[in-house]
Design a protein around this nucleic acid. Sequence first.
DNA 1: AGAAGTCTCGC
DNA 2: CAAGCGAGACTTCTT
Length: 437
Amino acid sequence: MKILANYGIVVKGKLFDTMIAHYLINPDMRHNMDVLSETYLKYAPKSIETLIGKKGKNQLSMRDVNLEDIKEYAAEDADITLQLKEVFSPILDKAETKKLFEEIEIPLIPVLAAMEMEGINLDADFLKSMATDMQKEIADFEQKIYETAGEKFNLASPKQLGDILFDKLKIGGAKQKKTKTGQYATGEEVLSYLANEHQIVKDILDWRQMVKLQNTYIEALPNQIDKKTGRVHTDYMQTVAATGRLSSNNPNLQNIPIRTAQRSNAKTVNFGIIYGVSAFGLSNQTSLSRSESAALIDAYYKTYPRLKSFIQEQIDFARNHGYVQTVLGRRRYLKDINSANAVVRSAAERNAVNAPIQGSAADIIKIAMINIHKKLTSENWKSKMLLQVHDELVFDVHNTELEKIQPMIKHEMENAFELSVPFEVEIGSGRNWLEAH
DNA sequence: AGAAGTCTCGC
DNA sequence: CAAGCGAGACTTCTT
């Protein structure tokens, strides 16, 4: 989807793979992991209280704060500094955490504020014409679906849809998955499984995708354009995600569909295994059978003996200390790690593995952002940093700086923090976000 | 009006 | 039972 009308560059770091390799101390691992899982999946069908806050509390927005105030970020009267201090207060006595607070989170505030205030350009004309085309297509699909169903109903209601599909049309037989409230489940996973049973299921999947794009992005984003600046200005939340990631809202610019290709099979497998996916879960997602999935997971552990011990070490550490931590000492407290309830405890154990990987990646890109912003301002670059999407930074680049700025940004990303393995970074440019990928 | 539930977009 | 972290659109239930 074409979003930016500016010239932009995107820098994307292999943060997830790098963090795993770092923790497992095997520099070649990220490549081997791809090869291994691709080998297994080659013939498979495609189908296949943290340190920094709690959800809903202490949400920080940079939008309403005067940039000049933020620049004086150490000042006691800066709202955000006070809020951050409140969130951090229980752990400010710990030396390592104090360092994280003072050297990462506080210096990040003016960086985020500048990005929010800079805003981002939307190609409003393009979105408008896209909305018109999309509206027509959505209406056509609705017509077709209602005809097939033999009645009109609220297609956006999973409840009504479930009754039509499973009670009236009796698709997929008698035994259908239910949600926790007892209505039929009609999620993507369920419908994809039934797609070959009835054309209406395929149509509903297509309709859902179009409506999602239309309502969440194509029509919603232009409404978020600021009248004064003509751009959209997201709010970055610094104290929401349990792992230390940022989040973005009003609008969320971290979930813009920028590429149609999802995640590769290898990625799905790597991702799942590190986070403790079961054979059941993997087979659901990849169309591998349960036993094939179990064999794949087993092969992973055999190929990477450090993987199992890393997982066990994280769990043991969490049991002993009540928290796990990232490379910079960012903590995630896991109150359920010793729970008697196996489901609850297992979830905490997966958190113990996930948090240091996801959180360390967040630490490292934050350092890179601070350093890049420092260079952009002190060296009087005209280009601006616009967005952060977890492992990716997006810049609005002045034409004259296009060649010169790329090595600088790449270098700052790759060298933000020294790990036991190199951190690989890709960089691309284009006239909009899509082209730059 | 607000909360809860369901679903789907991103990394 | 069954992969981590988010935001948000929409429907339905509760107050």
